[in-house]
């Protein structure tokens, strides 16, 4: 099918608008992080940087607590990801490949948990964590992050499990392989994209989590990036260069991760969406 000139024009015009609407703010942040302070706050902003400096990144890495926040965020995100995958995989397999009484009701309850406001359980959770001595501990953050990533992760595995023909498992059963072996040896490689999607979702959820990290973590040395940054934003004199460099540095890990497995993540997100 060929497009008329008008159709092409509106299509590419639309594409351009989307690219600009999403890309331009990131471009400004990226370029802003290497501008000299006086160019950053210039009255007439520059599209392409006229100056070049790494002073903001130097300050970020040497004079701020950013490296500590980065490390904390990394540790919390990696553990959250690992536990989310460990819990979500078997649960998703049982929900979508096995029969058991109460399956539908349980599945719906878990889905409901996904849309549940975190702030509602924040107050009682704080009390519970205080009782067992887990406030101001990254363990508490991992527990919370896993709980909030889990429902969506189970749901996302659905479309990936659906792509595996049942015959493969049935053949393995005939051969007398125990179910756990089937799951680990045969199914795992086939649903690797799904596992990657769940992992990236869990990582991103943890990487961005602000609410619980702001309340459960008290000491500065244990803060994650979102909360650490919020502290800097709240200061009276905002050091934009430092913040833009920090924003750039906080974007890099998720973008790198996404560049590797983003395509699968998007398909997991969309294929599960309809039915």
């Amino acid at each position: 099918m060929r497009r008329t000139f008008g159709q092409s024009l509106s299509l590419y015009g639309g594409v351009l608008v989307i690219v600009l609407a999403i890309g331009l703010p990131f471009w400004w942040v990226l370029t802003g992080s290497i501008k000299l302070p006086k160019e950053i706050i210039q009255r007439v902003p520059t599209m392409v940087p006229h100056s070049f400096t790494l002073q903001h990144f130097e300050k970020l890495l040497q004079a701020s607590d950013f490296p500590i926040y980065l490390l904390n965020s990394m540790v919390v995100a990696l553990f959250s990801t690992a536990f989310t995958v460990l819990l979500a995989l078997p649960a998703a397999y049982a929900f979508f490949r096995m029969e058991f009484p109460g399956r539908n009701a349980l599945y719906k309850t878990i889905l409901l948990a996904y849309a549940f406001p975190g702030v509602v359980v924040l107050i009682p959770l704080y009390g519970l964590f205080a009782k067992v001595g887990l406030t101001d501990s990254p363990v508490a953050l991992v527990i919370v992050n896993v709980a909030f990533a889990l429902p969506f992760s189970i749901w996302m595995m659905r479309s990936f499990l659906a792509t595996v023909p049942r015959e493969i498992e049935e053949a393995a059963v005939v051969d007398g392989a125990p179910t756990t072996t089937i799951l680990i040896r045969i199914l795992m490689p086939l649903i690797a994209p799904g596992i990657a999607s769940v992992a990236i979702f869990a990582f991103i959820s943890s990487w961005t989590e602000f609410l619980f990290a702001s309340v459960l973590i008290v000491s500065d040395a244990r803060r994650t990036i979102p909360v650490g940054f919020a502290g800097i934003i709240g200061q009276y004199q905002i050091d934009w260069g430092l913040l833009l460099a920090g924003a750039t540095a906080a974007i890099i890990p998720v973008v790198a991760l996404f560049a590797l497995v983003g395509r699968w993540f998007v398909s997991g997100l969309t294929d599960g969406a309809v039915k």
Partner: peptide, 15 residues
């Protein structure tokens, strides 16, 4: 296109 959704909220706020 999902870029805005995968970066931390605090980055969105800074931007």
């Amino acid at each position: 296109i999902i870029l805005t959704w995968i970066v931390p909220t605090v980055v969105v706020v800074i931007i």
